Simulated scan of single mutants.
Amino acid sequence: MRATSIHAVLAGALVFSASAVTAPAAYATETGVVIQKLSVNGGKPLVLGTSQTESVTLSVTASDDSGISSNMAFLQIDREVGDEYWSYHGRPTCTPVSATTSTCKLTVKLDAGWGVPRNALAGPWDVTVQLQAKDGDLYNNGGEPKHPVLRRGKLTVNASPEPVYKGKTLKVTGKLTRANWDKRTYAGYADKPVKLQFRKAGTSTYTTVKTAYTNSFGNLSTTVTASADGYWRWSFAGTSTTSTANAAGDYVDVR
């Protein structure tokens, strides 16, 4: 059975921004409508957890000799995988920048019952722009470009003992989880490489010490030799379906 499509629409403040792209030249020439900028989450992947307080914002700046009509604009981001389908879409609010150019913005607030999609839909989503110029010229980008919509990843860390004597063994544990959209919860992410990083007290940069793999429950564990005061954290690079994640640094006093 195909999953329900989301279409709650709100005009509002920009919560997520978007990636700048240029419309296909041939299409722009045929219609006369030129896409100057298209954005979804400021060029960053759209990362969704399990909360129903998330928002999705799409924005497009377009021009035509006659100007852009605000009555026919439509923006959508969607994906279909097998029987699963989801979309966030609606009519944006278009604001004239000049006589020929307008910026159209749409903010979709996730619905309390159907806010996040199914797990199978994490990955590249189609971004659709439909516009009409005031002289009747139509523009439809046909679902290009793609934009990543990812399950949110989370990491925890604990380094012990605290304090520890210099040269002694320090055990660093943690857990990597990611949003399970199907069950609206977070679950362990198994068999994934995660970097153990250290930031010496008084500095601002983390350095990778080693890489460990999560077990079947997403748990992490390794040992290092204590050498200096500082912060330990786990860092996950992300995958095609799951966001990057960094644990908050755990400070260890070395004596």
Rank of each mutant, 00 (worst) to 15 (best):
H7G: 15
L10R: 15
F16L: 05
S17H: 06
A23R: 03
E30M: 02
T31I: 13
V33D: 07
V34G: 05
I35F: 06
G43H: 09
T50H: 09
Q52R: 03
Q52I: 04
V56A: 00
T57A: 03
S63C: 04
D64N: 09
S66Q: 13
G67W: 02
N71D: 13
F74K: 05
R79Q: 11
Y85M: 03
W86M: 13
R91G: 14
C94Q: 03
L106D: 04
T107K: 06
K109W: 10
D111H: 15
A112W: 10
G115S: 13
A120Q: 05
A120Y: 01
P145W: 14
H147G: 04
V149Y: 00
K166C: 08
K168S: 01
K168P: 05
K171S: 07
K171W: 00
T173S: 15
G174P: 08
L176T: 08
L176W: 14
A179Y: 02
D182P: 09
Y186R: 00
P193S: 01
K195A: 13
K195D: 11
Q197R: 02
R199T: 00
T203P: 00
T205V: 02
Y206F: 07
Y206H: 01
K210S: 08
T211H: 08
Y213E: 10
F217P: 00
G218A: 11
L220N: 12
S221E: 15
S221A: 14
W234Q: 01
S235T: 10
G238K: 05
S243Q: 04
T244F: 07
A245V: 10
